[in-house]
Write a protein that binds this DNA or RNA. Structure first.
Lengths: 154, 154
DNA sequence: CATCGAGATTTTCGTACGTCATCAGGTACA
DNA sequence: TGTACCTGATGACGTACGAAAATCTCGATG
């Protein structure tokens, strides 16, 4: 019964330290290094873990402004618009959504001028029928990845 | 010249592989292992790199629904509301924003029922004056971290 | 005033040592 | 049969430390 639980624990341990060694993970989870190695490979192959990244504080490197941009798009132009947004490197998330707007995108900019320039340029697309931009005043939490549930048994 | 450039290159290399060894990074950037180690420590101390995490595909572990929740909040209750949201483990991002709404939060849920339950419970808070939920139909890109600019000189 | 250079500081580097990841072969248990 | 474990062997890895190189500081000099 540990089999699937171990995977969840392994993911959670890595969420705590994504550069932890297999040995330290093995010790933490009280299994052998081999087992950690095997399960980790499986998780990567299954696509549960898609890769590893540092958490970069963009504020600390000069990207002081975050904005949430909502767009109403002409129906059949949706793929074009989302493609364009994704290719903007500063767009961190692009969602197609239900509701008043069709697309919600989140982007990071060096300052409000840079933000305005980029957004104005985006809105020249005639397929965009309406837009609404919210500037982030305070990121209470951002891109947090929560831990997976571990069913505990004795 | 290279000093700050090396830091940017180092961050970019880690964005490519967050578990890359110091040796492979050193080879890629054509500096010694020690230099990589020193600069990496500095970046961590300065807070540019806040830690390392695996990229978890929540879809693959049963969290099939992502929602963007927008709230209008009674002015002085804003901190309480954002605190509550942040403590909901499934809320990955919580922003205080300008515009029609005061708070934009992004959350992940196992299914629409679970989402509805949690959102309904949230909205019992009398400080929340209005709300608007958009369900994500398609995550074109999510929590992408873009590379830092490297000024090239000869 | 521009230049120089000795000394101090910072940055980078190579080496060395203990640890680590990986693989293979074999055991135990359900 | 499948999962987890141990052992041993090998090459890769992280870190500490002193040497070397590059950079900066600043007063003296022509």
């Amino acid at each position: 019964m540990t089999y699937e639980n171990l995977d969840a624990k392994l993911v959670n341990a890595l969420l705590g330290d994504g550069r932890a060694s297999l040995r330290s993970l093995a010790e933490e989870l009280d299994v052998s290094v081999t087992t950690v190695s095997n399960h980790l490979s499986d998780l990567e192959e299954q696509g549960v873990i898609e890769g590893y990244t540092p958490r970069v504080d963009y504020d600390a490197v000069g990207y002081d402004v975050t904005a949430v941009i909502q767009l109403q798009v002409e129906g059949n132009a949706l793929p074009d618009v989302t493609d364009t947004l994704r290719d903007h490197r500063q767009m961190t998330s692009v969602y197609e959504v239900t509701g008043d707007y069709d697309v919600i995108a989140i982007g990071k900019f060096e300052d409000t001028d840079g933000m305005n320039d980029q957004i104005k340029q985006l809105l020249t697309d005639p397929d965009i029928k309406a837009s609404n931009t919210s500037v982030v005043l305070n990121a209470v939490s951002e891109n947090e990845q929560f831990e997976l549930e571990v069913e505990d048994e004795e």
